[in-house]
Design a protein around this nucleic acid. Structure first.
Lengths: 91, 91
DNA sequence: TTGATACATTCAAATATTTCGATGTATTAA
DNA sequence: TTAATACATCGAAATATTTGAATGTATCAA
């Protein structure tokens, strides 16, 4: 994983609301609908949409269109790659 | 590790110059002097000082005063704790 | 003690990020 | 086809981060 990607993922993780989203994703068996997010994140719809976009752009979550809803799943592989980079720092 | 700490560490990792510093720290057997940083980071002294402070505040590096120099060492334990948080997201 | 070196701090400008109102698009229900 | 729902996008304001010039402090060398 190159430095630019690490930077992007780190930025995506550097916000309390986005961390909340990831935590809830885990709770919900790594699957979440956009509408669900309004329940635990105290922001307007455009803001939530923005945060989900940043997480998606960092490939930490993977979106799927389901009718007029969006389904989000955690991307375990990307987390693994990010962790690998961090572990390599210690080597 | 609580969300605030994760946020702080993520922010510290979300900058190309700080990532460079961490990478060079690894190269130099996890030990670096402030003066060394000028060689590979193209910023002025106050900026470098600022970045080192953010990394220190996040406890990713541990500073030691050695005469008029500062020695910086990577804090493996903090990286481990951060990695643990990330791994727990997948669980 | 004086000058130089190493680093920190302060302040302000430039830049990036976060947030939301307004609005647009796609899908579904009636 | 019309109205409602789900979400995206745009634009602007508020806030945070990054950067460097100026300056301060501590240490060392002469």
């Amino acid at each position: 994983m190159d430095a630019k990607k690490v930077e992007k993922i780190s930025k995506a993780l550097a916000d309390p609301n986005r961390l909340l989203i990831l935590k809830e994703l885990r709770k919900n068996k790594n699957c979440l609908y956009c509408t669900d997010v309004y329940e635990f994140v105290d922001l307007t719809q455009p803001s939530i949409s923005h945060h989900l976009k940043l997480l998606t752009d960092a490939e930490l979550i993977i979106p799927t269109k389901e009718g007029r809803n969006m389904k989000y799943e955690l991307n375990n592989k990307m987390i693994d790659q990010y962790v690998n980079f961090l572990q390599a720092l210690k080597a």
